[in-house]
Design a binder for these strands. Structure first.
Lengths: 95, 95
DNA sequence: ATAATTTGGTTTATAATATAAACTAGTTTA
DNA sequence: TAAACTAGTTTATATTATAAACCAAATTAT
C-alpha cells in the first residue's frame, strides 16, 4: 500500500526543484538563464542556489563574461542522486 | 523545453499531498487512519484537513463511532481534478 | 464513586521557509 | 557625469508548517 516516506525538503520546494530540473536536463546554466526560465526574482534565486550549493547538490562557478560577473551552476553527482531519490519517493504519492 | 508552470501550493506540501494521495486511492479515510499512515501529529493533520476542506478538495464528515467522535474524509471531484492538474505540472519538473 | 488515563480531536504559539524589497558594486548609455 | 542598467547579495517580512498545549468525553483502575 501507499508508502508515504518523507520527501527531501530541500528538493520539495517549487523553485529549488525547478532549478534542479533545469540543471539536470542542461548539465549547466547561468544565473540569468535560471531567472528567465523560472520567472523568480534574483534575490529568491540567489538564496535558493546557496542552499543547494551548501547541501552539495550544485556547484556554483563565479567568473566574468567580459566585464560583467557571471554565475554558472552545475549539478553534482550528489545532487543527481538526491533528485533521483526524491523522484522515486514522490512517485509513491502521485501514482 | 522544460515548462516550469507553478505548482498548486495547496498540494505541494508533503502532508497535504500525502493526505490527498491516500484519499484518492481509498476514496475515503478516517482521521485516525490518516494519522497512522502519515505519522504526522493530530494537530498538524487537523490544520491541513481544514485547508483542504476550505479549498473544496475534500469533504469532512463528522459523526460518532459508538460514543466516540469520528472524522471521515472524502476527496471531492474538485480535489481529484486539482490533484491531476498538479501531477501533470509536476511531471514537467521530474521527467 | 472518583481519580487517572486514553481517545479523538482543535486551537494557538512557535519554528522554519519562501519571497521580495532594499541594497551593493560595477558597467553602459545619454 | 549623471542616470539607468546588469548581475547579483543581504536582509526584512510574509507565509507555511509543525508541534505543544489544550478540551471534552469516554474508558480504565483504585
Amino acid at each position: 500500500m501507499k508508502d508515504l516516506t518523507p520527501l527531501d525538503p530541500l528538493l520539495h520546494s517549487q523553485l529549488r526543484l525547478g532549478i534542479m530540473s533545469l540543471l539536470i536536463s542542461l548539465e549547466s546554466a547561468e544565473f540569468t538563464f535560471i531567472k528567465e526560465k523560472t520567472g523568480a526574482t534574483a534575490g529568491n534565486i540567489s538564496v535558493q542556489l546557496d542552499k543547494l550549493s551548501t547541501a552539495g547538490y550544485i556547484e556554483i562557478i563565479k567568473s566574468f563574461k567580459g566585464k560583467k560577473p557571471l554565475t554558472t551552476c552545475k549539478v553534482t553527482k550528489v545532487g543527481i542522486s538526491a533528485f533521483e531519490t526524491y523522484v522515486k519517493a514522490l512517485k509513491n504519492y502521485i501514482e
